[in-house]
Design a protein around this nucleic acid. Structure first.
Lengths: 343, 343
DNA sequence: ACATTAAAGTTAAACGTTTTTATTGTGCGG
DNA sequence: CCGCACAATAAAAACGTTTAACTTTAATGT
């Protein structure tokens, strides 16, 4: 047989399709007993709402677009981003809703703008989740101008208020630097993400402020911005460790670059805890397996990602963006004392 | 004002909507001149096909469901699977088609069965891509019985022929073992994925056969099956290295477990290249940053993933599954000589 | 008792397509 | 010059749903 529709239920119950539709949508226009009848019949025939009819009629898509900026095929370097977990978290948060996650993989920032423009103008989704925010993000402006529901993973700095979820980078860096300073480090390197990313700026400013408070001088030679690959971490250690006055601590923005930093240690014959130490920000929970394990700020990725899902739902229901802003503070996991032991 | 439809074009050209529709679909029933007229008008008004109308009318969804089995929120252990790249690759392969990737994140094998059953019976997608195949996979049977287009990432062993893409695990293990045997290793450990996964069995059998050919004895104590996390790699090194006759080589099924194996080396005071060596299968391209770098078989994940996308398109067009089967041989990257140097 | 109102349904239109069926016009053989 | 085939287009129905507008029935107030 063919799939049952509301027409099937109408015949089954002797009601009109309009009443059936209203009953299924909990309209107050239908008596509770009638509703019960309809629901029973629906159950009996195994009715399942056909979304295509709904979509055509209402114009809603019941899709949440997840924009994922993944490096192109050429780029084989690992960046240690657990996008998969991010996507799963969003997907799970939408589980009990009629919404589905629709994936838009793009290769570059520019392409993500074009994709979002298309989604907005052709209404290919009801909401958008976008990550890798810039300090002044044209995509955010675009969506705001169109009054399109969205949530960002990452804050912006120059844009009007919008819904976001992010790790508390400011606090994380402030505490990191203070902790290392307390332990006697005066030359602290900051391995930072690409400079156009919003959290890069946040981290850099927090870093400068924290140095200031600790009475340490800011040296531009100890900061680096780039793609957070192992290669990047390695290069920076190779370079910075051969400066006249090399750093004794490296704060890496993720575990991939931290792994690369270790590789640099190995190449230079540096010993962790004697010549310098490495700290990281962590969402893979992998740095406990480094040799030796390092101190990290750990944020299980499912927390922000499920929040992204919940927030986009609420945003699509019209909730104000100001109410949907959260910074999550990662947990400090001290796996090393991080004081240098001269031997 | 509102979005143009074929009705708009009909008015614009003075034709009927039927003719417009046919013209846009390259029907032979319409004169080339008329078609040109229609296309010009469509261009002029900025017409874009509304999928909801098409979907309702034709019953096609233009969605490809990607089933992603991701560990639940509790499970914070990294498994080193670049799902994100996999999804991007699929998404890119579908770029020039009307199809979109729709994500179905599930927590377990059982849930993936239920999800697939639903997609098939309610026709929530036109094709399915599924990974993590079992030797005898009920999902494959399910889709085959319903004659539903699908491609698997991973082979099956007991199922009827179907479209798949996979790394050539058999050859990879065979060559790995032979290479290590040549280099004087007689105790070779196999760190394998969960035993119910198809490629686990493939690898195990290839391993046994290769040992046989090399004249080495198979010792069950040197094989382990489990989730390919760093923890698993570490545990196995800790355990196996304290056997009366410990292995001198570890073949790890991925980089996450290889990283964990290194952590085990560190804990036991083992030195890579003196006491034992680690080899891996690699799609992150990360093991070059281990200290020291290790020999791996490398398969850039975008290759199989784009192939998955192309295959599902062809499968949905009705191509026979037998024509859509590919094993890709990863490339051997020798980063270490892997002969033990007694010091 | 009768108009008024509220409650509970029904009818019909609409969303944007595709596709089957019907209509019109043209050139052709006889 | 008449019927016929064929080409090109038009008309209409259909996919499954929601919703505005309407109808019927019952309850209410005076």
């Amino acid at each position: 047989m063919s799939r049952p529709t509301i027409k099937t239920i109408a015949q089954e119950t002797g009601l009109s399709i309009a009443t059936v539709s209203k009953a299924l949508n909990d309209s107050p226009q239908v008596r509770p007993e009638t509703r019960a009848l309809v629901v029973a019949a629906a159950e009996r025939v195994g009715y399942q709402l056909n979304m295509h009819g709904v979509q055509l009629r209402t114009g809603k898509t019941y899709q949440v677009a997840a924009i994922m900026t993944a490096p192109g095929p050429k780029q084989n370097e690992w960046e240690g981003v657990e996008y998969a977990q991010l996507l799963s978290g969003i997907s799970w948060a939408l589980e009990d809703s009629p919404y589905r996650v629709s994936l838009y993989a793009v290769r570059s920032f520019e392409e993500s703008i074009a994709t979002i423009r298309q989604i907005v103008s052709l209404k290919k989704a009801d909401g958008i989740i976008v990550s890798g925010t810039h300090a002044d993000d044209p995509r955010v402006r675009l969506m705001q101008e169109a009054d399109f529901p969205f949530v960002t993973y990452g804050t912006t700095i120059h844009n009007a208020p919008h819904a976001y979820v992010d790790a508390d980078n400011e606090q994380m860096i402030r505490l990191s630097v203070a902790r290392l300073a307390e332990r006697g480090h005066s030359r602290i390197a900051l391995i930072n993400p690409m400079a156009d990313l919003s959290y890069s700026l946040t981290r850099l400013e927090a870093y400068r402020k924290a140095l200031d408070i600790a009475g340490l001088v800011f040296d531009p030679a100890l900061t680096a911005h780039g793609h957070l690959t192992p290669a990047f971490g390695r290069e920076n250690v190779l370079h910075m460790s051969s400066l006249p006055n090399p750093p004794t601590a490296y704060i890496c923005a993720n575990e991939a670059s931290a792994l690369g930093a270790f590789s640099g240690f190995h190449a230079r014959g540096l010993v962790h805890g004697r010549d310098a130490v490495i700290n990281a920000t962590d969402d893979l929970n992998v740095s406990q397996y480094f040799a030796p394990p390092i101190t990290t700020y750990f944020l299980p990725i499912h927390e922000p990602s499920e929040m992204l899902g919940r927030y986009i739902l609420r945003r699509m229901e019209g909730e104000a963006p100001e109410a949907l802003q959260t910074l999550i503070m990662p947990k400090l996991i001290e796996r090393s004392d991080d004081r240098l032991v001269k031997s």
